[in-house]
Amino acid sequence: MLLAKDQLAALLEQLSKGSARLYVPARVDATTRFALFEPGIKTAFHLVNTTLPPKDLLFPQTQKMYRYGFDEQGIPYIDPVHDDDEVIAFGLRPCDMASIDCMDAVFLTKGYEDEFYAPRRKRLLTVVIGCTAPAQTCFCDSMAGDASTAPTADIQLNETADGSAYAVLANTPKGEAALTDWSGFLSDAKAPELLHAECSLKVSMEGIKQKLDTMYEHPLWERIAKKCVTCGACTYVCPTCHCFDISQENRMKEGERFRSWDSCMFSSYTLMAGDHNPRADKMPRVRQRFLHKLCFFEDRYGRSLCVGCGRCVEKCPVALDITELIDEIGAL
């Protein structure tokens, strides 16, 4: 099936009127991110990647978990906060979808299905648009991904070679069902040749994990960490960084406990009572981030935690580049 490009705006308009909240890549203030489709939105489908990743659709930067307080009789209460909105993420990139796969592994496996993530995930419809012109910092196809395909996405769109339309493919029953809402905008025409993209930035992951397994004490980490300013930008823009803090805010006799994004780049992250801190210094924190991405996560979940989106490469203020690190390890 084909979706003519000149039908995209009308389709989005229609979807935005449905019961699900529709999120699309957009320019908001001074940045780009997935934003609610509403009148006046500055959509940004031309971007390869939004500056901020779509992870907040599933894992909000701040998420209320429950309210607590005392009722009129002085009886304490705790009321969990759950929202039940259906959400469509329209215009994800294949690397974004891979990052959702990583988050699913964290939040939905190993004994506990996270009670705040799982319902959001179940109600999320993922619509991925395959890339046609990866950025200079993109390297998804070196990280077991592919710039054009997203096999776990509910619906996948790929641009036709003449640039006039998207070929539409439902990968899941959920995507299949969702396409009924699109029917007025689709044509049955068979897709002509599709654009397939390849990243120009390449790294070789061959043997990297095996080397890193034995590199915990390697002098390289001191040198790598030297220029890091521990600003945490890499973890903020990373689509797979999922660490969170739990905190609370009180007003009079009521309050709410919430979780919010945290970063392993900050020393307070592991600070324990009695002032003991296993990662007080910068080097162990930088090492932790890279080993978690390229080594520990794979041991635990069977895949890398880096999807090659290039956001950290783009945003690091001191040009600490994970692809250069991988090359350097490969050359050892």
């Binding site: 004994g111 996270d114 992250y269």
Partner: peptide
Amino acid sequence: LEMRMKCGIGKCGRCNVGSKYICL
């Protein structure tokens, strides 16, 4: 072992030692 913990269910990330989570 002890580590700083927030979630207790192996999600929040801070108590990891390599591929293991101390809480879980």
